[in-house]
Design a protein around this nucleic acid. Structure first.
Length: 174
DNA sequence: CCCTGATTCGC
DNA sequence: GCGAATCAGG
């Protein structure tokens, strides 16, 4: 990939918006975060006023999330319909049948309140970040939970519970 | 450990 | 000019 005018323009825009180098690299595609940083320096636009790093943001989310909601283990409690993002909680109300993910969820999950996700992009996932899909796979804002995984497995403690499916329910991915 | 940007230096 | 390797830091 080479730095076309269009890609440079998008780089400037995203960098001005405060996205991290790795996030920009992910969106541009075909370049590493090092390449992005290098280009930023060559363009001499390294300074950024904002302190809006992903890590800072997630810390704030986690802090505010602890105040408003009860124990999220209300799977069998079908009365919690309220979705309140201001307390850092969100509800999974979409039926996921995505083929873009290795782990297919066949059952419709509703009325389950979980802590808000970090919403990481695919390339930002590591062995210890939750890989639960968040959002519409067909929309540009689709990404992954990104919370720290629990004891084991590909999902965080909240999503791993949702992800469980008996072998009898397992379907072949078409 | 996973992430951040900064810098260096061979290509 | 480019970006991988490396550094320093949260």
């Amino acid at each position: 990939m080479n730095w076309t005018d269009e890609r440079v323009e998008q780089l400037k825009k995203l960098w001005a918006e405060g996205l991290s180098a790795s996030q920009i690299a992910a969106q541009l595609g075909g370049v590493s975060r090092n390449a992005v940083i290098g280009k930023v320096h060559r363009l001499k636009l390294s300074g950024r006023g904002k302190t809006t790093s992903t890590q800072t943001r997630s810390k704030k989310v986690n802090t505010s999330a602890s105040s408003g909601h009860r124990s999220a283990g209300s799977l069998g409690h079908m009365s919690s319909r309220v979705v309140n993002r201001s307390v850092g909680a969100t509800a999974l109300q979409t039926e996921y049948s995505t083929d873009l993910v290795t782990h297919t969820v066949t059952k419709t999950v509703t009325d389950v309140v979980v802590p808000i996700s970090r919403r990481l992009e695919l390339v930002q996932l590591s062995e210890r970040t939750c890989k639960w899909p968040v959002g519409d796979p067909l929309q540009p804002d689709f990404n992954f939970c990104g919370n720290d995984v629990g004891d084991s497995g590909p999902y965080c403690t909240y999503h791993s519970r949702l992800a469980y499916q008996p072998a009898s329910d397992r379907r072949r991915i078409r």
